[in-house]
Design a protein around this nucleic acid. Structure first.
Length: 1095
RNA sequence: GCGCGGGUGGCUUAGUCGGUUAGAGCACCCGGCUGAUAACCGGGAGGUCGCAGGUUCAAGUCCUGCCUCGCGCACCA
């Protein structure tokens, strides 16, 4: 190991960048894994980011949590491989490219050329790869970016195809006709998780429409918020159990009627009874009440007779029953347009309604709907439709005089919009491919139950809820850039799903043999459009088959990651079999319906298995104001701002300590700075203190020895405390409470190590002569620092590596976890933490709980001393002749320490407790309340305010005291000893060996010339030391001093010598009763005037 | 609308089984200490624990309702 050398000043950024170089040249990441070659595997799976967006601070958060768990597990002896990944397909890529190339529609893409377009997508995907790589490296996220999985690679796609074929063969992949949210602008339908991205609140006209019954004078009222669906109306749905009324308009509506529509006096309307008040704006007479079932089967006149051809349907334009009809809003009658609503479609299919489109794929009314509507974008037709309906006798000239519109009303609701283009989506019946998730719902729930979620409520609540409402997964997209759906289909519906390149080649060969012309299909055929579209296959019955012209939902790609990253099963399957299901994944909570779901969906359908055993779901990252970070708000924090200022260590440590991982993180730049100043600067200075002296003394931790049991209590204390802290730290890691772990460790470093251990040990190292004590201190510091480095390493990997290397000659990232390395043991698994194995491999110093308690008491007393002095107005440097300790354990080993801290000449133990202490009695409510019941407060008051607490306590101890009729026993009261008034004293309370002890510190306020002399000497010394520091003198440099005193206490010979020694003065002159020369430094203390010069 | 998670001094947060004086850090003020670091120590100011009810001898903590922020679901006709 290298000789310890001085640390120098801290430059965190320089330190980190230097380490990055070292890691690179040592191949440190790979080495750290190779060292665990024989460890039990801990399988991590990277959720692939897309590299066509710039990485932001929220990516740093996610990557920190991924990294820290992997580093931690590695230190525990597990073998943790970390393959990178890139998500490279999908709509975001296409939209980006469309914008850049000004291709606004699918037609323009096809005109431009699908091959050229996809080539542009393929390149666009890597736009920010370099930025991602730089960020990833700079923050020290150790992941293999040299061999990542990439969803656009043939190997990856081939595995995805294989998975689809598994689904196809199991009958889980099917072609359907379903109503889906559809965006005419992008020409594609969306799955539910994409739809969820785009809800927006909008105000739209909703209309109440009269449907005139055939052979009846009445009209049925129905309501819709989408007037554009009215031309497609072919049915009305009523609830069979719902009560409806037929009512007659009694008088004309009032003046305050708003908007179009109306009804004539005497007109008859039918609607749900419960909704009359909400809907009707006329006074009416109820003529009849009846259940919905009696309306079923009645025919009515179409609103737009030209729009739909009923064909051979005899249910078109009749009243149907549906049990899902409610009376929460509308009229209790649901307008049904088969092609534009999910319920509508299902009802229409069941009832045999004609399934015809009135709207085309561009979102325009088809020719023949109505002369005023044909060819127009449906969302801009609301006004026209309202006008048509409200004209006299309505659109068909046979309606009521008042028109077909009863009312219009603005309706405020959230409506799904395209998450890329912001246009409203249309629910639209279309051809699509689905994965039958509903068939595996029970499995999904069962697998999910076995996942360890952090926090647990995401799994049970949010994700569980999603699974309980699972719908079939619409996985096809009418797009260009993505994994092509590998299904070929003939005109008669014969289908073939291709599961590999080899299979494709065979099928192509078969087709060619049958005389169908085909392009070449080499081994490296590009598995993208338009190449795969070019292949024409032949069915088993000899029919021509074309590929279904869809690509896959890109979420399907990432859901295949567990096996597609290894090109399973084409690679032989070993890697996959050894690494599935994975042990750990971690992403933002927004992935609940995204990656968390698709991983499970794919593994459940393909492998009948869970996909991951543990999932850490991270909270969103917000700005310092609590607003979501977004490009449009311009409140995105650039990670480099902090990487280049406080460094990645401080940034990572801050993010982890700022709150629980799953809580939203308010990212505050000041917090990073604070973390740097507190944690890292302090740690560095402790390290510097150690190595600077170690270098001076030529300390060698391996050549020397200092048995812990022979070291002073202070050393044994900090080591014991470290043991306790390390175990708690580990336990919090296990519980996913990294924030608590790190807050406690930071507290330990700053408070226990720096502010107490190092401060108390400073003088021990100043001593130039070798001594057991100095050696003990050096070993202790060495051990504490080394161990803290290892605990910090997973979270903030830089500074501690520098320190660890300097102290031990080895990288901390090759070091073992101090709490144990059970992963390195034969037969270990990542699922169970082997307590015995951990204990056997732990490298913690001995623990002494009693000692920890005693030291807490000592520190409390030292602090109490300062309080006493402040209260008594006695300055800190003026010694007291003596201090008394009243009660508590024997602190004799700490008397020297306490004398220094308290600045007293001697510590005495006072045996007569009553001399300085009195008793206070406090009620113990938990015990007293059940007895005293309602009187408890009065009893408590009486106990607290007792005139003679000593006597009362004696009675209580002698068998109980009667207080306000309640027998108070010993367990009903807490006894507290506090200092008596009139003394310069403070009482501290400390838990020691399971009991509460009260110790009083009393300081002697009497003065003497000797004390005054000593106090003066200390004040002078402190000023000279400050001056030495001002002058930037070397620690060893000697000086000569001149001191002038006026109206000051006389300084004794011993104290004069002491000043000289402390300040390394080789010559010292004292002049009494003089103000000294002009140029001298001067100060005043308690009325004494002092001047001095330092040369 | 339904579900989940929050709301504690100016800011960030802790708060166990309900136990009577709500604890810390940052910032602020006063004092002290320092060959100790952007440090440290003592003291101070600053809190209707989101609001309103309720249960209880006792509520930041449990219950109900409401307000508010975030997230998710569904927005249906």
């Amino acid at each position: 190991m290298p000789r310890l050398s001085p640390a120098g000043e801290l430059d965190a950024v320089a330190l980190e960048t230097a380490l990055l170089e070292a890691w690179k040249s040592e191949d440190a990441f790979r080495t750290s894994i190779q060292r665990r070659e024989h460890g039990a595997p801990f399988i991590f799976l990277e959720g692939p980011p897309t590299a066509n967006g710039k990485p932001g601070i929220h990516h740093v958060v996610a990557r920190t949590y991924k990294d820290l768990v992997c580093r931690w597990k590695t230190m525990e002896g597990f073998k943790v491989e970390r393959k990178g990944g890139w998500d490279t397909h999908g709509l975001p890529v296409e939209i980006e490219v469309q914008k850049r190339l000004d291709l606004l529609s699918n037609e323009s893409i096809e005109e431009f050329g699908m091959d050229k377009f996809n080539q542009a997508c393929r390149e666009s995907v890597w736009t920010y790869e370099a930025a991602w790589r730089e960020m990833t490296e700079r923050m020290a996220y150790w992941v293999d970016l040299d061999n990542p999985y990439v969803t656009l690679h043939n190997d990856y796609i081939e595995s995805s195809w294989w998975a689809l074929k598994q689904m196809f063969d199991k009958g889980l992949l099917y072609r359907g006709h379903k109503v889906l949210p559809y965006c005419p602008q992008t020409g594609t339908s969306y799955s539910s998780h994409e739809v969820a991205l785009g809800y927006k609140e909008v105000k739209e006209p909703s209309v109440y429409v009269k449907f005139k019954l055939v052979g009846d004078s009445a009209s049925i009222l129905a309501w819709t918020t989408t007037p554009w669906t009215l031309p497609g109306n072919v049915g009305l749905a009523v609830g069979p159990e719902v009560t409806y009324v037929r009512c007659k308009v009694r008088e004309a509506a009032g003046e305050n009627w708003q908007g179009a529509g109306g009804a004539d006096v005497g007109e008859e309307l039918i609607l749900a009874k419960d909704l009359m008040k909400d809907v009707l704006r006329h006074h009416v007479d109820i003529m009849e009440e009846f259940p919905g079932s009696s309306l079923v089967g009645k025919g009515y006149e179409p609103l737009f007779p030209e729009a739909i051809d009923a064909g051979d349907s005899d249910s078109a334009w009749t009243v149907l029953e549906a049990d899902w009809v409610t009376t929460t809003d509308g009229t209790g009658v649901v307008h049904t347009a088969v092609m534009y609503g999910e319920d509508d479609y299902n009802l229409g299919m069941a009832a045999g309604l004609p399934a015809q489109h009135t709207v085309n794929m561009e979102g325009e009314f088809v020719a023949g709907t109505h002369p005023e509507l044909d060819g127009r974008y449906v969302k801009s037709c609301d006004e026209t439709i309202i006008a048509l309906l409200s004209s006299s006798k309505g659109t068909n000239g046979t309606g009521p005089e008042s028109g077909l519109l009863y009312r219009e009303k603005d309706y405020l609701h959230d409506y799904p919009h395209c998450w890329r283009t912001d246009h409203p989506l249309l629910y639209y019946a279309m051809d699509s491919w689905f994965v039958r998730m509903t068939a595996v719902k029970e499995k999904l729930l069962e697998f999910n139950d076995n996942v360890e979620w952090a926090p647990d409520w995401v799994g049970e609540g949010r994700f569980g809820e999603w699974l309980r409402n699972v719908k079939d997964w619409a996985i096809s997209r009418e797009r260009y850039w993505g994994t092509p759906l590998p299904v070929w289909r003939s005109a008669t519906g014969e289908m073939k799903c291709v599961g590999s390149i080899q299979e494709l080649q065979n099928e192509v060969a078969k087709a060619v043999a049958a005389g169908i012309e085909n392009p070449d299909c080499p081994d490296d055929v590009d598995l993208h459009r338009p190449v795969v579209d070019g292949f024409t296959l032949i069915s088993d019955t000899g029919e021509i088959m074309h590929r279904e012209p869809f690509v896959m939902d890109c979420w399907f790609d990432s859901g295949c990651a567990p096996f597609a990253q290894w090109h399973h099963p084409f690679d032989g399957g070993e890697r996959f079999n050894a690494s599935f299901p994975v042990d750990y994944i971690c992403e933002g909570v927004d992935q609940t319906r995204g990656w968390f779901y698709t991983l499970l969906a794919v593994s459940a359908t393909v492998f009948d298995s869970m996909a991951y055993k543990r999932c850490l779901s991270l909270g969103l990252i917000l700005d310092a104001e609590g607003k979501k970070m977004s490009k449009s708000r311009g409140n995105i924090v650039d990670p480099w701002d902090h990487f280049n200022r406080e460094g990645a260590d401080a940034t990572r440590w801050y993010m982890v300590t700022a709150g629980a991982p799953w809580n939203p993180l308010k990212f505050d730049s000041n917090g990073v700075r604070e973390t740097y100043a507190k944690m890292f600067l302090t740690f560095w200075n402790v390290y510097k203190f150690h190595v600077d002296y170690a270098a001076l003394d030529g300390f060698d931790p391996e050549e020397t020895d200092s048995p812990i049991e022979h070291r002073p209590a202070l050393d044994r204390w900090i080591l014991s405390k470290l043991h306790t802290v390390a175990q708690d730290y580990h336990q919090e890691f296990v519980n996913w409470n990294y924030h608590k772990a790190c807050r406690d460790l930071e507290e330990f470093v700053v408070n226990d190590v720096s502010n107490w251990y190092v401060r108390r040990s400073r003088r021990r190292l100043w001593d130039e002569a070798d001594s057991d004590d100095k050696l003990a201190c050096q070993h202790t510091l060495h051990e504490v620092l080394t161990l803290v480095c290892r605990l910090v390493a997973p979270i903030a990997p830089f500074m501690v590596d520098t320190v660890h290397r300097a102290l031990t000659g080895e990288s901390v990232h090759n070091a073992d976890w101090p709490v144990g390395t059970p992963g390195s043991l034969e037969g270990a698994t990542a699922d169970a933490w082997d307590e015995a194995a951990a204990a056997a491999t732990a490298t913690l110093p001995p623990q002494d709980v009693h000692l920890e308690g005693v030291m807490t008491l000592v520190r409390e007393l030292a602090e109490a001393g300062r309080r006493v002095r402040v209260d008594a107005g006695r300055r800190q440097r003026l010694p007291c002749a003596q201090g008394w300790l009243v009660a508590g354990p024997d602190l004799t080993p700490y008397h020297d320490l306490l004398c220094e801290e308290l600045n007293v000449e001697a510590i005495r133990i006072e045996d007569d407790l009553d001399r300085f202490q009195r008793i206070e009695l406090a009620p113990n409510f938990r015990a007293l309340a059940p007895k005293a019941r309602a009187e408890v407060n009065n009893v408590a008051k009486a106990i607290r305010e007792s005139e003679h607490p000593n006597a009362l306590l004696k009675d209580i101890e002698d068998g109980g005291a009667e207080v306000l009729g309640v027998l108070v026993e010993r367990s009903d009261v807490d006894v507290k000893r506090v200092e008596r008034e009139g003394f310069a004293a403070q009482t501290v309370e400390v838990e020691l060996d399971g009991e509460t002890v009260h110790v009083t510190l009393v300081l002697d306020m009497n003065d003497s010339p000797e004390l005054q002399s000593k106090g003066m000497a200390r004040d002078i010394t402190r000023r000279i030391q400050a001056k030495r520091k001002d002058l930037n003198l070397e620690m060893e440099a000697t000086v000569s001093l001149k001191i002038w005193l006026k109206e000051a206490p006389e300084i004794g010979e011993a104290d004069r010598t002491w000043i000289a020694h402390e300040t390394r003065a080789t010559a010292i002159e004292f002049h009494v009763d003089s103000d000294g020369p002009e140029h001298a430094e001067r100060f005043e203390v308690d009325g004494a005037r002092v001047a001095f010069t330092v040369e």
